[in-house]
Amino acid sequence: MAAAPDLLFGLRNNFYLGAYQAAINSGDVQNLSEEDAIERDCLIYRSYIALGSYQLVVNEVDSSAATPLQAVKLLALYLLSTDNKETVISSIREWLSDAAVGNNPILRLIAGIIFMHEQDNNEALKYTNVGGTMELTALNVQIFLKMHRSDYAEKQLRIMQQIDEDHTLTQLATAWLNLAVGGSKIQEAYLIFQDFSEKYQMTSLILNGKAVCCIHMGNFDEAESFLLEALNKDAKDPETLANLVVCSLHLGKPSSRFLSQLKLSHPDHMLIKRSLTAEESFDRAIQTI
């Protein structure tokens, strides 16, 4: 018997590759089961969150919505304001300890994402490490790479490859691992992003992937052209701005404008935090002379 068509494939794929508006636009999928309808709504609302429309998600998801949608609303609340963060974290801990809903994969995924934002990778892994979905396993790959444990990341990637080697998330996770390992693997990572750019709509995520590969290979001019193209698509994308800062420094070009834009739109970005720490250390060093 032929397998039923995956009605959410296009929507899911757009979301994974960072084509968030396209994901929202392709959300009108009919004849879905209740479970698939919830997944569709989660992907659409997560796309709105990725575009910065946090308040829209908070307004539209009411208290009677299913657990996965409530979890997505918590992520929107967390990102909406620093005042909400403690409340959101205590709510998510409470839900995760509830036997009835604590094992929901979307709730565990959102918990992992929130604790990654908190720079608490061990806490994130408490909820994501058992996996269960491609997204959870892909998030594990990201967390282990942030912890500089490419050996554990590789084990997670193998799980994904056994489930579906051609899955978009498996390909993305392979590229992330290749970038972390470096050397000859950089070219393999580049080919994955190149393949995406030939098959699907070009997004900031794909362009940044290609640019980072070029930076690793020392092709800074090519990297800059990909990043400027990404900037045309989204002038506030934090990764594009951060990568442009790095690229400009290598090319001997002024980077202060990109750094200022990043500071204004994403003051909590790691590059901004590191740059502020470096400035403070420099100021302290000057005072001692």
Score class of each variant (00 low, 15 high):
168 T>S: 12
128 T>A: 12
143 I>S: 07
123 E>M: 06
139 L>M: 09
131 G>T: 07
134 M>H: 05
122 N>C: 01
156 Q>K: 08
141 V>F: 07
144 F>Q: 02
151 D>C: 06
159 I>W: 01
147 M>F: 08
140 N>Q: 04
131 G>R: 09
124 A>H: 04
137 T>L: 00
131 G>C: 04
162 Q>E: 04
129 N>E: 13
151 D>P: 01
118 E>A: 15
141 V>I: 13
163 I>E: 03
145 L>M: 05
132 G>C: 11
123 E>R: 15
125 L>H: 08
124 A>C: 09
146 K>M: 10
159 I>C: 10
174 T>R: 02
134 M>R: 09
163 I>W: 13
153 A>F: 03
132 G>T: 12
148 H>Q: 07
129 N>D: 12
154 E>Q: 04
124 A>M: 10
128 T>G: 11
137 T>E: 00
143 I>F: 08
152 Y>L: 04
119 Q>M: 01
141 V>M: 05
145 L>V: 09
125 L>K: 05
172 L>N: 09
142 Q>R: 06
170 T>D: 05
149 R>N: 03
150 S>E: 11
126 K>T: 13
153 A>V: 01
160 M>L: 14
145 L>E: 02
150 S>C: 10
139 L>V: 15
157 L>P: 08
142 Q>E: 02
138 A>C: 07
149 R>Q: 00
167 H>G: 14
165 E>Q: 15
174 T>F: 00
156 Q>F: 01
137 T>S: 06
155 K>I: 14
147 M>Q: 12
152 Y>P: 02
170 T>K: 02
140 N>A: 03
136 L>M: 11
135 E>A: 13
147 M>A: 11
140 N>C: 13
127 Y>V: 12
167 H>A: 10
142 Q>I: 06
153 A>G: 07
131 G>V: 08
147 M>N: 14
131 G>S: 08
145 L>C: 08
151 D>N: 04
126 K>M: 13
161 Q>A: 15
134 M>E: 06
136 L>T: 15
131 G>M: 05
139 L>P: 12
133 T>W: 00
165 E>M: 04
122 N>F: 07
172 L>A: 06
127 Y>T: 06
151 D>Y: 06
154 E>D: 07
175 A>N: 03
125 L>C: 15
159 I>E: 12
